[in-house]
Design a binder for these strands. Structure first.
Lengths: 354, 354
DNA sequence: CTGAAAGCGCTTACAG
DNA sequence: CTGAAAGCGCTTACAG
C-alpha cells in the first residue's frame, strides 16, 4: 500500500544534498555535452535510447546528467517533435462523483505513460466545449479524451477533422463515438438499466418511475431506453412516469416531490444516477414514505456514498479503473488504436433500497 | 445562465465554413508574415500588442491571421519565454467532494487568465508528491497550486528553493504555508470548529466525539484543535472521544461502530468532514439510534450531499468559489503577490442533524 | 558509433 | 514604426 502516514511526508526530497550549481539557470543538453565531452547528438541519443552509443560515452553522459541534475525541457522537446506530451481530459461535470473518480484514474494512467493530464471541465455547457475547441489547436496536444455524458455528437465533426489533420489521438469514455471514428470505452447502459427494471417488474412493481432522462444527456437517454424497453415489454410504460427536471441530487428530489404532489401512484424508482436516487430517497422520507417498503429505489453507478445511505442503495456497478486502464492501452499501443468499441459490464449491486 | 440544453450542442463549431488550406500543417507566423507582406517581428508585435504598429500593417496582419486560421504554437512561445502557460494543481484527493469542487473553480479561474490546468492527484500519498517534485522541473510550469490537507510541510523546502530559482509562482489553498513564503488561501478551521463545539456544549452536550483528526492531516488537526479548546474550556475533554481511524465515509462509520461496541456514552459528534458525518449517521442508524434525538451530528464543509441526507446535515460552510477567485487575483496581479494569508470565514449551516 | 548543422515556431534586443 | 537576425533547448537526418 501507499505510505499515507504523517511521517512519510517527511522523507520527501530532503534526503541527500542538492549538488552545487554554478549558474541559476537549469542545465541544458549543451551543459551536459560539455561536461561529458561529447556532442549534443550523443547526449540526446543516450537520453532517448534512440541509437546505439558506446558504453564509455553512455556512462560519461549519465554521470554528467546526474551531476548537473539535468531535466529535459518538455517544451523544447515538444516543439521539435511536433506535439506536446499532455492529454486533455474533457469531463462533463467534475462535481459529479463518477466524473471525479474517472478523472483520478485517468490521471494516474496517463502518468504511467509519462504524459500529463490537462483538465477541462465542461459543466454541461455547450459554450465551453466550443471554447475548448478554439483553444486546443494552440496546445499541440498529444490526445483529447472526451468523458462527456451530454449529446455532443452534432458539434464533433470539426474536431475530428482537425484532430486527424494534426495527429491528435481522440478517445471517448462513457459515450459511444465510434461512428466518428473515435475509439470509445463505454459501460453497458441500456441493457443494464433494462435488467434492473425487469427485476423490479419481477418483484411485482408496475408503477416504476424513471428519473434521469436528463435533457441533452446522451448517456441518460441511453439508460432511459433500457427502462422503456423493459416497461413496454411488460405493458407498463407510461410517459407520466418519466422525469427529467434537473441535475444530480435535485433531479431526484424534485421529481418525487412533483409526482407525489400530483398524487401519482408509485412503488419504485429507477434513478439515472446514484445522486438522483439519493435525492429521491430524501424526498420520499420528507413525505413520510418508507424505502423500500413503500417505494423501492435503484441508483446507477455505485458511488461510494451509496453504501452509506440508509437504507443502503441498490445500484448498478461501474468500473472507472478498468476504463482508465483501457484508455492507457489505447494511448500506449498506438498501432492497434483503431476506432474500437470497448464495453464494460454493469452488474446489479443489491443493497437495502430495492 | 449557461446554455445546457440539447440543442445548444448543435451550434458548436459547425457554423461557417472552414477556410480552404493549402498544406496540411498548421500555419506559422512565417505564413502569416508572408501573406501580410510584413516581417515576423511585426506579426508578433500585433499578436501580442507588445509595440505600436501602424494601423495599415495591423489590419493586414489581422486579415492574414483570420484567413490562415493562425494559432500560435504554445510550446514555441513557452520555449522562447522561458516558461509554459500551465499551472499545476496538486490536490490531496480528488475523490473528496470538496477537492473536486475546488478543482472545478480553479480550472475556470485559470482559464480566465488564459492558463491551462494540469491536474495532479496526490491521493494522500507522500510518494506521489515526491514523484511530482521530480517531474515538475521539466515542465517549466507557470505556477504550482498546493491544495493539500496533509501535513506536507516537512518536504516542502526543496520545492520552495527550486521554485524561487526558476520563477515558478507557488500558492496554497486550504493550508497555511506562508511560513515558507507561499501565499496561502485558507478557510477558518480552528475557530469554526470551536464555535460549533461550543454550540453543542451550550445545547447541553458534554459527551461530544471528534471524528477526523486524520493521521497526517494538517487541516484535520487544525479543526481538532478548535474542538479541544472548546472541550477543555468546558472541562469535558476526554481523549477517548477522539477518533482518527480512516478516510472519508468509512472514518465516520467505523468510529461510531467502535465507540458503540465499547459501550461509550455519546450524545454528539463533530465530524472532520461531511463525508465523515454521513458515515457516522449510517452507523448510528444501524444501531437503532436516532439523529439528532439520541446523537447530534455536525459535519464540516457543506457539500451538496448534506442537504439531501435525512435528517439534513448541520455543517460548517466553505467557499471554493471565493478561494478560486483569490487565486486568480494572485496569479493575475503579479506585483502584489506577497506571501499573504487570506482567510475565508466558515459559518454554521443549521439543518436537522444537530 | 559519433559529430556538425539544420530547424521546430516563436519573441526580443538591436539597428535603422 | 519596421525588419533582419539571434536564440530559447531540443532531435534528427546527413556525413563520416
Amino acid at each position: 500500500m501507499m505510505k499515507t502516514f504523517s511521517n512519510a511526508w517527511q522523507t520527501g526530497l530532503s534526503e541527500g544534498t542538492a549538488p552545487s550549481r554554478d549558474s541559476l539557470a537549469s542545465a541544458t543538453v549543451i551543459d551536459v555535452a560539455r561536461r561529458a565531452g561529447v556532442s549534443l547528438a550523443t547526449v540526446s541519443r543516450v537520453l532517448n535510447a534512440s541509437a546505439v552509443v558506446s558504453p564509455e560515452l553512455r556512462d560519461k553522459v549519465s554521470a554528467a546528467v546526474q551531476a548537473l541534475e539535468y531535466r529535459p525541457n518538455l517544451m523544447a522537446q515538444g516543439l521539435r517533435k511536433g506535439h506536446s506530451n499532455t492529454v486533455a481530459l474533457l469531463v462533463g461535470d467534475i462535481a459529479q462523483r463518477h466524473f471525479a473518480e474517472l478523472t483520478m484514474h485517468v490521471q494516474s494512467s496517463l502518468e504511467e505513460l509519462g504524459a500529463s493530464l490537462m483538465l477541462y471541465n465542461l459543466g454541461h455547457s455547450a459554450a465551453r466545449l466550443k471554447d475548448f475547441f478554439a483553444r486546443a489547436p494552440a496546445m499541440r496536444l498529444r490526445g483529447i479524451v472526451l468523458a462527456v455524458s451530454d449529446g455532443i455528437a452534432p458539434s464533433l465533426a470539426p474536431l475530428v477533422t482537425e484532430a486527424r489533420r494534426s495527429g491528435v489521438t481522440l478517445a471517448a469514455i462513457g459515450q459511444d463515438l465510434t461512428r466518428f471514428g473515435i475509439a470509445s470505452i463505454v459501460h453497458e447502459e441500456r441493457a443494464a438499466c433494462r435488467r434492473s427494471v425487469e427485476r423490479l417488474l419481477t418483484l411485482g412493481h408496475t408503477r416504476i418511475a424513471y428519473v434521469g432522462r436528463i435533457k441533452g444527456s446522451a448517456v441518460g437517454s441511453e439508460r432511459f431506453r433500457g427502462y422503456r424497453t423493459a416497461m413496454k415489454a411488460a405493458g407498463a410504460f407510461d410517459d407520466a412516469l418519466v422525469f427529467d427536471l434537473a441535475f444530480r441530487y435535485a433531479a431526484g428530489h424534485d421529481a418525487i416531490v412533483r409526482a407525489l404532489d400530483r398524487g401519482m401512484a408509485l412503488t419504485a424508482v429507477q434513478g439515472g444516477s446514484d445522486e438522483i436516487a439519493a435525492g429521491a430517497i430524501a424526498a420520499l422520507r420528507d413525505r413520510g414514505l418508507r424505502v423500500p417498503e413503500d417505494v423501492a429505489i435503484v441508483g446507477f453507478g455505485d458511488i461510494e456514498l451509496g453504501a452509506y445511505l440508509r437504507p443502503a442503495l441498490t445500484t448498478l456497478s461501474s468500473h472507472p479503473t478498468l476504463a482508465a486502464r483501457h484508455l492507457r492501452d489505447l494511448f500506449d499501443g498506438k498501432g492497434t488504436t483503431r476506432a474500437d468499441l470497448t464495453v464494460l459490464p454493469r452488474s446489479l449491486v443489491l443493497r437495502g433500497s430495492a
